[in-house]
């Protein structure tokens, strides 16, 4: 995945301009920057959700997208959410195994509106396990997770990169993972 000369404007302020970005196989790139620096904006441009005000993004293959709002519908249970996207993507992943890995066996059939923030985040992260995709775009993925969950996600991300996948993640310094490269906005 490559971004050429990307630029973004918020109101009358230029967030970034002339930004070049390359992501190669096996790389874990951490986006750093103060609040409001444009980490989420850059991620959304890489994902194709926002049109860059300048420059272009070249993508090879599909990506997974996890952002601060998890993409769960209030009426969905974790099992229904994962089943829904598994069917949409034509994935044959075992939902029960995924729920076990996420430690969501117990609240698997509770509507998301009743789940804790950490449980919602785990449900969203479950989408990563439904289908193998080379690129993961993660916006603050460690937020709301407990210590055990953070360690689990750290291992998951490291394993993904070890298998040749690539990750761009907006991260705080406290995140329990060592990025290959840092990219400061």
């Amino acid at each position: 995945m490559q971004g050429h000369g990307l630029g973004a404007v918020r109101g009358e302020r230029i967030l970034f301009s002339g930004l070049n970005f390359t992501l190669g196989a096996g790389e874990l790139v951490a986006l750093r920057g103060v609040n409001g620096a444009g980490k989420t904006t850059l991620l959304r441009q890489l994902a194709g959700l926002s049109q860059p005000q300048a420059g272009r993004v070249d993508r090879a293959g599909r990506h997974h997208w996890i952002s601060h709002n998890n993409g769960l519908k209030a009426h969905e249970t974790p099992r229904r959410h994962l089943m829904h996207w598994a069917r949409v993507w034509g994935s044959s992943a075992g939902i029960d195994e995924v729920l076990t890995m996420l430690r969501l066996k117990r609240p698997a059939d509770v509507p998301c509106s009743l789940l804790s923030a950490g449980q919602k985040r785990r449900t969203a992260l479950g989408r990563l396990l439904l289908e193998v995709r080379p690129v993961w775009l993660l916006d603050e993925p460690f937020n709301a997770l407990d210590a055990e969950g953070q360690a689990w996600l750290g291992t998951l991300m490291t394993d993904h990169c070890a298998r040749g996948g690539a990750i761009v993640a907006a991260l705080h310094a406290a995140a329990p993972i060592t990025p290959v490269r840092e990219f400061t906005l």
Binding site: A47, L49, H63, W65, N69, L72, W85, V88
Partner: peptide, 14 residues
């Protein structure tokens, strides 16, 4: 609702 819970982001990327 789709916009606020992030489901729209997922659908747009399909």
């Amino acid at each position: 609702a789709d916009l606020h819970d992030g489901a729209l982001d997922l659908w747009v990327q399909e």
